Simulated assay, not measured.
Amino acid sequence: MTDTIEIMSVELVIVADLSIKIVQSIGSVLHGVLMELVGTDYAGQLHEAGLRPYNQYVYFDKDRKQYIWRLSAVTADAVNRIVRPMLEMPEKIFLKQKRSHLYIKDRTILEETSYEDLIHKFWSSDSLYTQAKLQCMSTTSFKVDKQYTIFPEAFRIYRYLLRQWNQFSTFGMLDTDSILGDLEAGVFIRDYNLRMGIYGLEGVKIRGFRGQVVMQFKRNVEMQRVLALLSYYSQFTGLGIKTALGMGGIKCEVIE
């Protein structure tokens, strides 16, 4: 493990007063809680930069029968200024918009890593990666020609992830111009089990998709590694629009 943790993912088990219904769009309210936590200066910096080096979303875990609030960050700065303070939050949180309380019941660190370690993870083994299963945990959408997309497209997903990686990586950029065509030619959607998702945000209903998408990688070992890396990375960045406000939450399983 390197000294610097640049990528970190945590989850909190949450419950709320009876007056609050926990639904996925509470993510936008919780974003407000986070921005209060980090303070106006840093919140302002993030807003001005237009960068979102973190993503967060809420979902219901059917196996555990619990509501989970998951947060990830992809820079050392965001890890230290957003994720770590979140782990130290008081157990009882007042939600101004809802005039009620949320309670944190449990806190778990899911992963701590760095860009160098992620590169090693996918390049140092002899594994061949053939597929990635992307589970869209909260409504996911891209904005194309002023319309919200209701179906995933492989090229759009990997173009987005490549851009995120090159924006935040401290160890090895992936050359966009030369790689993009190969990347898009090297993957296709093998299978999916999706349904329409609606995300309510400040009175606007954003349409998108939820559920599982299986990505198939074609037989080019180098491209398979890049695709596996970016697929895995999607868990920390989220996918598509408004990932800071609770949309585009992803869980990923890379298949060898």
Rank of each mutant, 00 (worst) to 15 (best):
D63K: 14
G211N: 06
L46F: 05
S72G: 08
W69Y: 09
V29W: 11
R210H: 01
A16K: 02
I198M: 10
D191S: 02
E112T: 04
Y158P: 01
V254T: 05
L162R: 13
H101R: 10
K146N: 13
A228F: 11
I250D: 09
S169W: 00
V38H: 03
Y148K: 07
Y42G: 03
L227D: 02
Q212W: 04
D77S: 12
I250F: 05
W165P: 01
R81F: 00
I14H: 01
Q135R: 15
L174P: 05
N55M: 09
R70A: 13
Y160C: 07
L174W: 05
L95G: 12
L134F: 08
Y67H: 15
E6D: 02
K143V: 09
P53D: 11
S9M: 09
M35S: 10
V15Y: 01
D177Q: 12
I206W: 11
I255R: 08
Q135G: 06
I22C: 12
A185I: 07
K205S: 07
L18G: 11
L37E: 08
R190I: 01
S178K: 09
D77E: 15
S141Y: 01
L12K: 01
Q216T: 05
S28C: 06
P85H: 02
V214Q: 14
T4C: 10
A73H: 07
I109A: 09
K133M: 11
Y57M: 08
I14K: 02
M223E: 14
C252L: 02
L194F: 01
R195Y: 05
T75M: 13
E91P: 02
L34K: 07
D106K: 09
I150H: 14
W69K: 08
R107W: 00
M1N: 07
K133A: 12
Y59Q: 03
L128W: 05
L37S: 06
V23F: 04
R156I: 11
S141P: 01
S234C: 03
S124T: 06
Y115P: 02
K92E: 09
L201Q: 15
M89N: 03
V204K: 15
I189H: 10
L110E: 12
A49F: 05
G208W: 12
D77H: 07
K218I: 04
R219W: 01
L34W: 05
Y160W: 14
